[in-house]
Simulated scan of single mutants.
Amino acid sequence: MAPSVLIDQAVDSSVPVAAKSLNNKIIKASHPNPSLQVTADHKLKSVDAPVYAPGRGEVLVHIKATGICGSDIHFWKTGRIGSLVFEGDCIIGHEASGIVLQCGEGVNHLKAGDRVAVEPGVPCEECFLCDEGRYNLCEDVHFAGVYPYAGTIQRYKVHPAKWLHKLPDNVSFAEGALLEPLSVVMHGVKTAGLSLGRGVVVCGAGPIGLIALAAARASGAHPIVITDLEPSRLAFAKDFVPSCITYQVDLTKDAQGNAQAIRALFGDSEYVAPDTVLECTGVESSVCTATYTARRGGTVMVIGVGKAIMNNLPFMHISLAEIDLRFINRYRDTWPPAIACLSGGILDLKKLVSHVFPLEKADDALHLCADTRNESIKVLVVDEQEASL
């Protein structure tokens, strides 16, 4: 994608140049544009950001709801996830939905007033991966909320129309914001290939793990065990999907010990041992446990995001048991089926929203989410303003 060029020279230096819309000028809106940035020195900063007019193929969206993701917390606290580094200040947020305010030239499938969900990754559409339809692996993706591309914790955001998806009337803005983590899970579940009546283990009862639990149940997998360290999260999981079996990870046991205890929940036979493990934490010890938990020839799908290097994976066990250790990077082609799942009642994720904050108090949302003592599940930042241009 071409570098951004501003027509209006009244540039707000607090917003990275690359985060601005292509060939766009700053416009005057009827309301301010409060936003939340993560700074290069690991602080949160509330900023009244500029508003840009949509260019060709783009749409100006009033963001109504954004979910807080663990990656937002990680960028704030550490400044990086693997090779993704915050080298300057950047508006964060990528799990979002909103209302179309204005369409740029050439946009025909959307109009002002449409309710939309934001697919945050904008690929280059020119590389071989994009040509193959594997756009989630594009190395030149512009991903909202990852430096230097401005995210969705702001009132007004310009986004390419191609990566906006209409919401049906029976899907709320809050549910629209949940489509992004649901997309992560759907890509993982599809890649793992769950089967009717075959056992599944879900490692981690955070938002991704809980969505994976619901998706596994909807897929027909059975029985389903979900694991976590926190009893309160396991209690929530049992209430969320009553048919699941819960297992509290025992820190006095090693990976093999916990795996043995988990497998015992499926019965004594190797045949009934779990065929698939959906690892939703990214924690190295949990990934190791997952590899010992899956049956021989089974699949471990790592959906969670972990540290850059893992040194202690049990290579010979994975090799001798022919464990299919698989990974995903975000998602592709998931928004329409994810919307269908929510609209059609296949999944009901509304219970996951535990806390809601107004846009002006987005920093409080981050602080609450970062403290595990608050026992939050999914925290939303919402804007109740009837914003217009």
Rank of each mutant, 00 (worst) to 15 (best):
A362Y: 07
V184I: 15
V379Y: 05
V241N: 00
R326K: 14
V277Y: 04
A237L: 05
F327H: 11
G209C: 05
L342G: 07
D254Q: 03
C244Q: 01
I226Y: 04
E125Y: 14
L110H: 10
Y247N: 03
V85R: 10
T372L: 13
A294G: 07
P242A: 01
A308Y: 09
A214M: 06
I63W: 07
G82R: 06
G206H: 05
F75V: 09
Y52H: 14
R373H: 13
A144V: 02
A40Q: 14
E384A: 15
I318M: 15
G57Q: 04
G55Q: 09
Y156C: 10
Q385P: 00
R373K: 15
A255N: 04
I346G: 00
P160Q: 10
P314Q: 07
S30D: 15
D324A: 13
S376P: 13
E139L: 12
T293H: 01
I99Y: 00
L6S: 13
V47N: 08
A221C: 05
G88N: 10
L389A: 06
V171F: 06
G204Y: 09
A18S: 14
D41C: 06
I328G: 08
P120W: 02
A261M: 07
D41H: 11
L22N: 10
P168F: 05
M316L: 13
V11M: 06
S232G: 00
H222T: 13
V356N: 02
V85I: 15
V277L: 03
G199N: 01
V17A: 15
N329W: 06
T299Q: 01
G67F: 09
K190D: 13
D371F: 03
T334F: 00
D348P: 01
V300H: 05
H94V: 08
E105S: 12
T252E: 14
K162F: 11
A49M: 07
Y135N: 08
G93R: 06
H42N: 15
K351T: 05
V379Q: 07
Y52G: 01
S388Q: 09
D363W: 02
I26N: 12
T291L: 07
P242L: 07
S286A: 15
L313P: 06
S319Y: 12
E125V: 00
A215C: 13
